[in-house]
Amino acid sequence: MSQDIIQQDPWASLKQFTTARIALGRTGTAIPLREVLNFRLAHAHARDAVYSALAVNALQEQLHAFYLPIVLLHSRAVDRYEYLQRPDKGRQLDAESISLLKSTAPGYLRKDVAIILADGLSATAMNVHTQPLLEVLIPLLKGAGLSLAPICIVQQGRVASGDEAGEILQAKVTLMLIGERPGLSAADSMGAYITFGPKPGITDESRNCISNIREEGLQYEAAAQKILYLIKEAIKLKLTGVALKDNTGLLE
């Protein structure tokens, strides 16, 4: 019977350019079983990413290669369930973390850039992409003459948790690397948020965001170059957010 033959979508050739769910084809009036199963698998991966945990010990071991102090912090969300139900607590550091940051040696304060890592909504992304991105990025930052604060790791952290850390460290700019909300075509996407003059209460229009950092998206070298450009511009102009544009590639 011809009813069980998958009819190809006219847009099928576009699938080579994206992992989005387009041109799925059909069997009669239904989506092919293969695509239904792929959708369920992608949904499962997304749920797993949301509940994944930072591999803190492995991450710390990887970060030792950069010869910077590492500070392990925690938000006010005590566990994953509270983190998901109370976004406000994920935006704030707990009292122990604040005390730990305040004990930072004076020689590591008032640096140009504070790199802060947080699990966000996909610790999977951080476990996979942190080391390869920083292997490219940190030499670029140092080569540009930018000084670096201790690397902070925030468990159960959201983007704004970096504002408090950056203020205590008195950094000019914070670079928050965080696991992004997983989608049905990418459960391991990392985001980079750049904030000049970090302090609690800053809102998202005052940040610059670089999204979809992963092998199948914005690759490490391109992401690192874009981060470096935005950080240098932020320090030069003393601002980030909607007023800071990425003008790379434009004619002078």
Rank of each mutant, 00 (worst) to 15 (best):
151 I>Y: 03
193 Y>W: 09
86 R>T: 09
175 L>Q: 03
93 L>Q: 03
178 I>S: 09
109 L>E: 08
171 A>N: 05
98 I>D: 03
148 L>Q: 07
76 R>G: 05
154 V>A: 01
243 A>M: 12
229 Y>K: 05
239 L>W: 00
157 G>D: 08
214 R>D: 01
28 G>E: 10
37 L>H: 10
160 A>N: 08
241 G>S: 11
74 H>L: 00
184 L>T: 05
187 A>G: 02
127 N>P: 00
137 L>V: 11
176 M>F: 07
142 K>E: 12
69 P>T: 03
100 L>Y: 01
237 L>C: 10
160 A>R: 11
13 S>E: 13
86 R>W: 11
59 L>E: 01
146 L>R: 03
98 I>V: 15
39 F>R: 07
247 N>T: 15
124 T>C: 04
210 I>M: 09
96 E>N: 05
118 A>G: 10
200 P>D: 06
239 L>P: 00
248 T>Y: 04
66 F>G: 01
243 A>I: 06
64 H>Y: 11
25 G>W: 10
62 Q>I: 00
211 S>N: 13
206 S>Q: 15
231 I>K: 02
18 T>E: 13
88 D>L: 13
245 K>C: 01
225 Q>N: 09
120 G>N: 10
4 D>S: 14
114 A>S: 06
224 A>S: 12
164 E>Q: 14
1 M>P: 02
168 I>T: 07
126 M>C: 00
210 I>G: 08
184 L>Y: 12
118 A>H: 05
96 E>M: 04
17 F>C: 08
96 E>A: 13
140 L>C: 08
69 P>V: 02
244 L>C: 03
192 A>N: 13
10 P>N: 04
93 L>Y: 06
83 Y>K: 11
245 K>P: 01
178 I>C: 10
2 S>E: 12
19 T>K: 15
159 V>D: 02
123 A>H: 04
78 V>T: 15
114 A>N: 02
214 R>L: 01
41 L>D: 12
239 L>G: 00
44 A>Y: 12
239 L>E: 04
121 L>K: 06
122 S>Y: 02
252 E>G: 15
43 H>W: 15
4 D>W: 14
87 P>N: 02
139 P>L: 12
56 V>Y: 07
192 A>L: 12
95 A>G: 00
148 L>D: 06
88 D>A: 14
31 I>P: 01
46 A>V: 06
157 G>S: 08
105 A>I: 04
65 A>Y: 05
147 S>H: 12
94 D>P: 10
37 L>D: 01
125 A>H: 09
156 Q>I: 08
184 L>P: 03
240 T>R: 07
42 A>K: 04
122 S>C: 06
42 A>R: 04
153 I>N: 04
132 P>V: 12
6 I>W: 10
93 L>H: 09
93 L>T: 02
236 K>I: 00
248 T>F: 07
141 L>M: 11
112 D>Q: 08
236 K>Q: 05
220 Y>S: 00
188 D>G: 08
99 S>G: 03
218 L>A: 02
109 L>P: 10
203 T>W: 07
117 L>Q: 04
163 D>K: 08
231 I>N: 00
37 L>R: 10
235 I>D: 07
207 R>V: 03
69 P>R: 04
171 A>S: 14
213 I>K: 06
244 L>R: 13
192 A>S: 14
211 S>V: 12
221 E>Q: 14
252 E>I: 13
122 S>H: 07
